[in-house]
Simulated scan of single mutants.
Amino acid sequence: MSRFIHNWDGKTPYVLVTIIRVSGHAAAKPGDKAIVTSGGDIIGSIGGGCLRGAVVKAARMAIETGEPQFIRTVPKDKIDEVPEEEDIKTYPSACPSRGEVEVFLEPVKPKPVLVVFGETELAHTLVAFGRALGFKAVHGLSETDGGSAGTESFDLDSLSGESNLKADYIVVATQGVKDKITLEASLKSSCPHVFFVASVKKANFWRERLGEAGMTDREMLKLISPAGLHIRAESPAEIALSILAQIVQIKNEKQEQSVESNGGTSERK
């Protein structure tokens, strides 16, 4: 386990598994820990093979939803006797030992990546606030950074100064300095949400210009502008707050939809 954690790439999610309680005879012992990788491999000790299927299935759910999972396994012939509980899923077990095991699974996921472009007070405030909220907030390169921001075209990797960067959210707060080239790179990236700090008039202007430049409808749908929730924000800090509130809202709605699509009831087979 320690070797896996030490060599973790910081990008691929995994699940930390802990045996909470054991009733009757079972190979698992309270306090036993293991890691379940995104590929379903188990690293560590959680007892015999009877528990593995349920743990891997619950681990995949934890990774997909981003939510911890609390499960238990009971003998198949006792499954109907176990009372349903909202916060715990019950899986049948065919173990000859007939033990019952409760397991807690905690997903370890990389921080959502927020890339902010612009050499403004607002841009720097967004990075600071973003990091405080648990994002991996990256400040994009400026013209004076010696990167590719001064060229006619570039990709998101060169613009942000990080290789293989996959942004979850981008905020373009360039405020008139290389708006077009930054918007084009952001919208052509794999990032699904691109926030542009601009007035309604300016946002519409750039929508027209980007459309004329060949930006596809699918790429244009990523653009969110004016950026931020309408809270009558005035100062750079208030505007940053409104934008991050909108980003958090989108992030949490996606997680909620993922949970609902997978159901929230106990699995009883």
Rank of each mutant, 00 (worst) to 15 (best):
E81A: 15
E81H: 03
V82R: 01
P83F: 02
P83L: 06
P83M: 08
P83Q: 05
E85R: 13
E86F: 11
D87S: 06
D87I: 07
T90M: 08
T90G: 11
T90L: 12
Y91A: 13
S93D: 09
S93T: 13
S93E: 07
S93V: 08
A94H: 13
C95H: 05
C95W: 00
P96Y: 03
S97W: 12
E100V: 02
E100P: 00
V101W: 12
E102K: 05
E102C: 00
V103D: 02
V103C: 00
V103P: 04
F104V: 04
L105W: 04
L105T: 09
E106V: 03
E106L: 07
E106G: 01
V108K: 12
V108D: 07
K109F: 09
K109V: 15
K109W: 06
P110A: 03
K111D: 10
K111L: 10
K111C: 04
V113R: 03
V115T: 14
V115N: 06
F117H: 10
F117M: 11
F117V: 08
E119Y: 00
T120H: 03
E121V: 14
E121T: 12
A123M: 00
A123S: 15
H124L: 14
T125P: 04
L126A: 09
L126T: 12
V127F: 02
V127Y: 02
F129T: 14
F129D: 14
G130W: 14
G130Y: 14
G130I: 15
G130R: 14
R131S: 11
A132Y: 14
A132R: 15
A132F: 14
A132K: 15
L133A: 09
G134L: 08
A137L: 10
A137P: 08
A137Q: 07
V138K: 02
H139F: 11
H139M: 11
L141E: 14
S142C: 02
S142Y: 00
S142P: 01
T144I: 13
G146I: 13
G146P: 07
G147N: 03
S148G: 07
S148M: 06
A149P: 01
T151S: 14
T151I: 03
T151L: 10
S153G: 00
S153P: 02
S153I: 07
F154L: 04
D155M: 00
D155S: 06
D155G: 10
D155H: 04
L156P: 03
D157S: 12
S158N: 15
S158V: 06
L159S: 05
L159W: 04
S160N: 05
G161F: 15
G161Q: 12
E162A: 01
S163P: 07
N164H: 12
L165G: 08
L165E: 01
L165K: 09
K166H: 14
A167T: 06
Y169E: 03
Y169P: 01
I170Y: 00
I170C: 07
I170H: 02
I170M: 02
I170S: 03
V172F: 08
V172G: 11
A173V: 04
T174Q: 01
T174P: 00
Q175I: 05
G176E: 06
V177G: 06
V177P: 02
K178R: 15
K178N: 13
K180V: 11
K180G: 07
K180R: 14
K180W: 01
I181V: 15
I181N: 13
T182P: 05
T182H: 14
T182L: 10
L183I: 04
L183H: 07
L183K: 00
L183R: 00
K188C: 00
S189V: 06
S190Y: 01
